[in-house]
Design a binder for these strands. Structure first.
Lengths: 183, 183
DNA sequence: CTGTCGTGAGACATATGTGTCTCATATGAA
DNA sequence: TTCATATGAGACACATATGTCTCACGACAG
């Protein structure tokens, strides 16, 4: 019946990304454990948030590695990235929200690495003529994150099936909403 | 030097949508007033949040009216909607975040009205063959909100000019990221 | 069975935020 | 000027969350 640190952190991420004011007791209940046990595994709220950020960065960077976003056709690389990101949308949402707190110039180093890698993919696609150049790479990066987070919430609410999420995000981001005659 | 209620609420919306844990003192400072004055205008935090939600709903519904989203070409209506929404992105972000707290079945009535009107526009576009049918109207509604919120944060951080925001959001949402030969 | 380990429940002091109050000051009208 | 009004600064009691503790229970290995 031992508590698994990763599972607790995943529950905490999904709760905190939606309700940042959740108490330690709320987090414990969301993870299915008591507050005492939660404190045994994490020295305090600060330590928990730190561990959460660390795990989130690792999960997402692992996803970037697995998607091999530096290789091949940019559009396909973006689809692979989205497919890797949607299962860990809760962690991404937490990180994304957490980095809205800092001053615009001092982001978390791990988050900065992630943004840089995703931004590089976008720029690579723009240079190859695959992605539009009239939209800034920075904005497209933000848009990608926002859509993944939104899809994660839709899944949490049962409005979207988890297996649909990658396609929903990728189709909107790559193709847009407009119907087209020629695919 | 009298405090203007609307300006205080706008500052509160932009702060709270990013940092839900902000204290009344933080909110007061963000609005450029003292905590005492903040309490003179709003009975308490609960009352402030209520007033904020009320104003946010009104601002956005006014925008929907001004954009006349029920009329004309759906794609153009969506562009008008985005143009009206981006200036009040802070309020939309607050409402959007606030409604992630409730249980999936009991949203704020005002927010439900907004979602319904936007959803109706999406469905109208799908029925007319203007918008894609392979993506659910609900998801497209969520995607729209998420992109507007993200653009608002970009503006707050100085990464995007306010006047660019409508086009950035509308272009990604309608056209997607992919470069195309034929416009 | 016996001992150990991890847990849940709850008590407790402390820290932080909230809501209310008083008082001094500044602005603006008569 | 004189007065009214609104504000800022700060004190205060109170509520809530946090962090630490003790104790009892149950699972599991020996």
């Amino acid at each position: 019946m031992t508590v698994h640190r990763g599972q607790v952190l995943k529950a905490a991420a999904e709760l905190l990304s939606r309700k940042a004011t959740a108490s330690m007791d709320d987090i414990a209940r969301a993870a299915g454990i008591s507050r005492a046990t939660l404190h045994r595994h994490f020295a305090g709220r600060e330590a928990l948030v730190f561990a959460l950020a660390e795990l989130a960065v690792r999960q997402i960077e692992d996803g970037l590695d697995a998607a091999r976003i530096e290789e091949g056709d940019p559009a396909q690389a973006l689809r692979r990235l989205v497919a890797q990101a949607t299962p860990v949308a809760g962690f991404l949402a937490f990180l994304y929200g957490e980095n809205q707190l800092y001053e615009p110039g001092t982001p978390d180093p791990g988050w900065a690495r992630i943004e840089e890698r995703v931004g590089a993919l976008i720029r690579r696609g723009q240079e190859r003529g695959a992605f539009r150049r009239d939209l800034s790479a920075h904005w497209l990066t933000d848009a990608l994150h926002a859509l993944v987070v939104a899809s994660g919430w839709s899944v949490q609410d049962g409005r979207m099936a988890p297996r649909e999420a990658p396609r929903m995000v990728a189709e909107v981001l790559l193709g847009g909403v407009l119907e087209r005659r020629t695919a």
